[in-house]
Design a protein around this nucleic acid. Sequence first.
DNA 1: GATCATAGTCGTCTTCCTGACGATAAACAG
DNA 2: CTGTTTATCGTCAGGAAGACGACTATGATC
Lengths: 254, 254
Amino acid sequence: MSPYDPSAFPPFAVTVDLVVLTVRRHALCALVVRRGEQPYQGRWALPGGFVRSEEDLGAAAARELAEETGLCAHEPGTPSIGNGAHLEQLATYGDPKRDPRMRVVSVAHLVLAPDLPAPRAGGDAHSARWAPVEALLGQEDDYSREDEPPAPLAFDHAQILADGVERARSKIEYSSLATAFCPPEFTVGELRRVYEAVWGVALDPRNFHRKVTGTPGFLVPSGGTTTRQGGRPAQLFRAGGATLLNPPMLRPEV
Amino acid sequence: MSPYDPSAFPPFAVTVDLVVLTVRRHALCALVVRRGEQPYQGRWALPGGFVRSEEDLGAAAARELAEETGLCAHEPGTPSIGNGAHLEQLATYGDPKRDPRMRVVSVAHLVLAPDLPAPRAGGDAHSARWAPVEALLGQEDDYSREDEPPAPLAFDHAQILADGVERARSKIEYSSLATAFCPPEFTVGELRRVYEAVWGVALDPRNFHRKVTGTPGFLVPSGGTTTRQGGRPAQLFRAGGATLLNPPMLRPEV
DNA sequence: GATCATAGTCGTCTTCCTGACGATAAACAG
DNA sequence: CTGTTTATCGTCAGGAAGACGACTATGATC
């Protein structure tokens, strides 16, 4: 190396893998599909697939997402239309032994989506489901009554998932990205429960309310109220134009 | 798609590109090499090259870095020995048209290094040099007496460089990574000039001194003093064990 | 209908951090 | 010796955040 000789380069397969996160029943959940073939047949894996010949990486990720969930994702540059989810590139994994069949370089992407109905299984997956990330990553916490034993994810997908979760946890600190987990209209309490689920901590409702309503551009009132959470009616908000929070939300000490 | 069929995948070339940053003469500079062949012959580009068949992505980046600069980089997981620089994966660029010859997916890496002597030109590059990022990115600022007209970088390297610079700018806010720009022993003033060069702002020496010396684990005194910056002798420090700064350094308003 | 549980919202107080900036200390240049 | 440069310590006011009390407006229960 490295005479830049295009005629003699080692060929790689390039795939995209998706870390699709949502908040369901007060828990951070990831989308996983059951593998229908070897290797790791029958094991859970992150959704993904090959990048096509004339396809950009982000486009491939958005296509795979649509195939698996029907979601219309938009990257930050793209104008935000419809009920799209947030999509961003996460990292690239290229260990020579990560796929026993051949050399595969996978460009992982992170998707943050509001709570959805059951995912539709599509493509090569026998089935798809939402699973709490704690169970998938084999944390210490209680999945005593979870219906799925914590079989490890296929390939290096546990590492990819862990990286995606950590990205989400840190990114909602200094950006308004937590609203990507919420429906178009939401209450301060619902947004707080998103933070609590993603961080796995309890937050003071009064300080949280003061913080988010006092940050300019974070939330804009939509006029209505709702009692879907019970208790006193809560004001409804939409995500404001601000994307960066300054000063940031502070994650409580460990 | 996407039956995961290894026998029928579109082949890609996978490369690593390097954004190597350092601080020289109070300016943030990047390592660029002059291209010796088509396309973009004679233009400046980021150093990089093909990933080998049995080589991990980070290893390929470290190898290319050593070939270009002689630097021994270590990724965060690796134990930090010697005069190594900081290396981390930045992002992956895979636009189908980014290289006119063929489909190339490039995994860009970010390297932060202390000020070095002139880079040694190696590999396929006719020559290598440090260039201020402002000139490379065609900023508004004064490069009136720069010896190089701001010819745009080859391929999409201007975008990659801009992403790397932005990563460095934000990362020194909440991590101790600014010390990667410093020699093993440095003064508070030298560290402050790193921040000033990377951010392009002036910082109050008194508040900066209070902040960095008051953050536990950021700096540990090494015992000696130096007057290499002129003026009153300054205490010498080494980087402490802390990697995350909490609370972070605050970048002044724009 | 009274009571209770639940969630939302507004305030207060203390503590910590930061930005602005005065003042002193220790070197070198003339 | 005097001015210049850089380093370092201190003070003060303003803002943000954690802890927590108090009040409000619903639905559920008796």
